[in-house]
């Protein structure tokens, strides 16, 4: 547990630096980057490591977001320092709800070989969105207002900002997600996932319960999608079903494909790219006057896929490639 803890503390120092150097819009983008990192890494577990194809990650994110948001409105006074304790717990509950949804969706569809999962998850994402649109208890189409979230925490003159508390909680889950997936993949459980991706028939013949492996990967993946949803809900203080449409699922798939199927660090890098790209292209759009963002965005993607068809990092991690490069040049 020492390595994850130190990693987290190191990244918190960066958070403090970001607190004093970045303006609030960039800080918000940073939180969104962290959320997308969790989405990307968790989807990579299914689409990259286990070789299945899920298209409904936004649906599980929505389940986590709405469940944890709803629960938090039952305990409205969650401001200030309390948030450091309560938000991780709420995130955990949101994650568990999403994991349960993942189990219900995964069990029937993962029994079957082939592309059923893509179709079922696609449908699931839409069902969740439409259901939320028609649920007045959580705002329906109007959106879900007034969700408690981190606020500035005044320690007698010394203020810890909303950003820093939000950053701490998002970063905590990024680190948790990374190390959980990293270590599970390097265990017997994870090797079962990989064998399913490589050759399902051979995996079965070698004693791997492939259905169980797939469901496990899927449930764990949904869990972290729910966590990402919860962080999103409490930081934005507002939810709208439109935020969890097909586009968000596609964004998650793009992160996985760009970064490389089976490369966690690849997903981290690609999450930065996918989150910031549209923003970086905004000036160009103002210059030309038409909406070129999506066009340029797609062109970048196509180019990348031509130059590096297996994603930025293939199935390798960033430091493996660096090590290889260093060995080659020295």
């Amino acid at each position: 547990m020492r390595v994850p803890m130190l990693t987290f503390l190191g990244l918190m120092i960066l958070g403090v630096i970001a607190e004093f150097t970045l303006d609030s819009f960039v800080q918000l983008m940073l939180i969104y980057v962290l959320i997308n990192m969790i989405l990307g890494m968790s989807l990579n577990l299914v689409n990259g490591f286990t070789g299945q194809f899920s298209l409904g990650h936004a649906g599980f994110m929505a389940v986590g977001a709405y469940v944890s948001a709803y629960l938090s409105t039952l305990f409205p006074d969650l401001t200030g320092g309390m948030g450091l304790v309560t938000f991780p717990v709420l995130a955990l509950l949101g994650g568990l709800a999403a994991a349960f949804a993942g189990y219900l969706v995964g069990l029937p569809s993962l029994r079957l070989r082939g592309d059923y999962l893509a179709i079922v998850t696609l449908g699931f994402g839409e069902i969740i969105r439409v259901t939320l649109l028609n649920m007045p208890a959580v705002g329906g189409a109007r959106g879900f207002y007034g969700i408690p979230g981190p606020t500035d925490w005044d320690l007698g003159g010394f203020v810890i900002s909303k950003f820093l508390i939000g950053y701490a909680q998002a970063m905590f889950w990024v680190v948790a997600c990374f190390f959980v997936i990293w270590r599970v993949v390097r265990s017997a459980h994870g090797r079962a996932f990989l064998s399913v991706r490589e050759d399902e028939i051979a995996a079965e013949a070698m004693g791997v319960d492939t259905t169980k492996a797939k469901v496990r990967a899927f449930v764990l993946s949904s869990f972290f999608a729910g966590i990402a949803g919860s962080i999103f809900a409490h930081y934005a203080n507002y939810l709208n079903p439109a935020s969890f449409g097909f586009n968000r699922s596609i964004d998650a798939v793009i992160i996985v494909v760009l970064g490389g199927m089976g490369s966690l660090t690849g997903s981290l890098v690609a999450a930065v790219f996918v989150t910031l790209m549209p923003e970086l292209l905004r000036p160009l759009q103002e210059l030309v006057g038409v909406d070129v963002r999506m066009v340029v965005y797609s062109l970048c993607l196509i180019l990348l896929m031509i130059l590096r068809p297996k994603g930025l990092f293939g199935s390798k991690e960033v430091f493996e490639l660096v090590r290889k490069y260093v060995r080659k040049t020295s």
């Binding site: 599970v184 265990s187 017997a188 090797r191 079962a192 990989l194 490589e198 050759d199 995996a203 199935s315």
Partner: peptide, 27 residues
């Protein structure tokens, strides 16, 4: 074979049901 896995990983997969520990044990 599991072509993209290493030689020893191929062998380890086959023994994975003999390694009895929970999903969170490696974490």
């Amino acid at each position: 074979l599991f072509r993209d896995l290493s030689v020893i990983e191929n062998v380890l997969v086959a023994g994975s049901h003999l390694a009895r520990y929970g999903l969170m044990a490696p974490v």
